[in-house]
Design a protein around this nucleic acid. Structure first.
Lengths: 250, 250
DNA sequence: CGCGCGTTTGAATGTTTTCAATCTTCGTGG
DNA sequence: CCACGAAGATTGAAAACATTCAAACGCGCG
């Protein structure tokens, strides 16, 4: 379903003058965060022209590993999980995407991983072919894509360190600390974070079982490092302890 | 030390005529594999103009995590290992690079990981600034970089699956099978592979200890899956068994 | 030939997993 | 509005896999 209908677009056109169309991207909540960031208004309009918008409910599938990769997405609201599965059902979550995140590009003609909605989502859709055409024309877009790819590589490397080197405790501490930073609540000593995903998602992201994740949460709570008002809300009472446990990194 | 000295270049110039300079990239063993692949001869010359060449002995450091990232490298001979360390010395090897591989780009103003020579190396060096300038001018270069970044992301995701989901046995089987594919010996039933790295490197790549790697090698040998003429040479006697154990992937 | 380092092998330990049961939460329907 | 049922989360106990500690082996180099 279109988030921004043609009708809405037309009504704004009239208000802004005859030659100028209303561009929903300009009012986008993640304008400045996603791929759109480096684009000039007229370039943004080109991008907007090929963009569709859609909403998905929680747990719905955006795309599956192996599907023909004909669409690229940008997250504007909600949280997406990216995952890969083994034949016997074991799953590795390779990342969580927040608004501004970009998914589906980068890959052959089929998606190399699956993407699902953790929460309800708002997405921008770009037909892959058209986006690729636009990349050729707009150097800013390609530069931005490269920069986002580099960030993704860096994040993936950090995750490899986590998966390969760290203990359960260190893994969860790292995860919570990073989520805390991402939420931008680093200033307050009492950092309240919302974890949209469930324990299984966290486990599959950290290479643990739900039981181990749960036990580790409980231990942290018992030690006064955090409090758990509900399963999805965490209050970091001693974020500095968490940071210590998480760290180890250069 | 320069692999191709200015003197050598001059002598060839004379041999080829007054207006044309000898371009060592044209004779490069990895021409067609690395970033140079998509470049036209004249573009290649631009790239060649900013390239330096050097050799390193085994175990020498190419660069360290945290060093100012002013140079980008391309591997022309040998194997490089990329790694990240925790403060207490635990190490995760994030990848091994073979000829055609590219390292050092992608990152802020400091390297986000370390790179060391597994074997003796031959490298091309590109001053980062100049390469970035060239990227702006040569769209093929940027396209290629993006494509290589995407491949790297894909590989990183596979490695996350390995680290997060797989057993020691599956990890080693995956590693050997991939190395076998990379060496291009997939046709023969008896696939002989050369592992330039030592057991510790393999362990740190797979998120295991050297002991576990060694034990798993021994078990594979006892089961007739492979033979170990020496620690660095592996004969895959039943590669299909290895592939089965490795797989699990879609 | 002997030393040193990397590898292999063995035994004990431990962290995480597995299996199982209970508790909690939340949505649905009576 | 409350009761019920299902799914997720927590907790406990037992088991397993990989690690740790320790010793022996083997290979290459001086």
């Amino acid at each position: 379903m279109a988030l921004q209908s043609a009708a809405t677009r037309d009504s704004r056109t009239a208000a802004q003058g005859p030659a100028r169309f209303y561009n929903p991207c300009e009012a986008c909540a993640v304008r400045g965060a996603g791929i759109c960031a480096p684009l000039e208004p007229q370039e943004l309009e080109r991008l907007s022209a090929i963009a569709g918008r859609s909403r998905l409910g929680a747990e719905q599938v955006v795309f599956c590993e192996g599907d023909p990769a004909d669409t690229v997405f940008a997250v504007t609201e909600g949280t997406v999980r990216l995952s890969k599965m083994l034949l016997d059902g074991r799953r590795q979550i390779t990342g969580f995407l927040s608004p501004g995140g970009f998914l589906g590009i980068a890959y052959s003609d089929t998606y190399s991983y699956s993407a699902e909605a953790v929460t309800s989502l708002a997405l921008c859709r770009f037909p892959r072919r058209q986006l690729e055409g636009l990349i050729v024309e707009l150097p800013g877009l390609e530069r931005r894509l490269l920069s986002m790819a580099f960030d993704e590589i860096k994040a993936a490397q950090d995750q490899m360190v986590l998966l390969g080197c760290k203990s359960a405790e260190e893994k969860l501490a790292t995860f919570l600390w990073q989520w805390c930073l991402k939420a931008g609540r680093r200033e307050r000593s009492d950092c309240v974070i919302d974890l949209p995903m469930n324990r299984t998602d966290i486990a599959d992201y950290l290479g643990l079982t739900t039981e181990t994740v749960s036990r580790t949460f409980s231990r942290f709570a018992k030690e006064g490092i955090l409090a758990l008002p509900s399963t999805h809300d965490v209050i970091l009472r001693r974020p500095e302890r968490l940071k210590e446990m998480a760290s180890g990194e250069f």
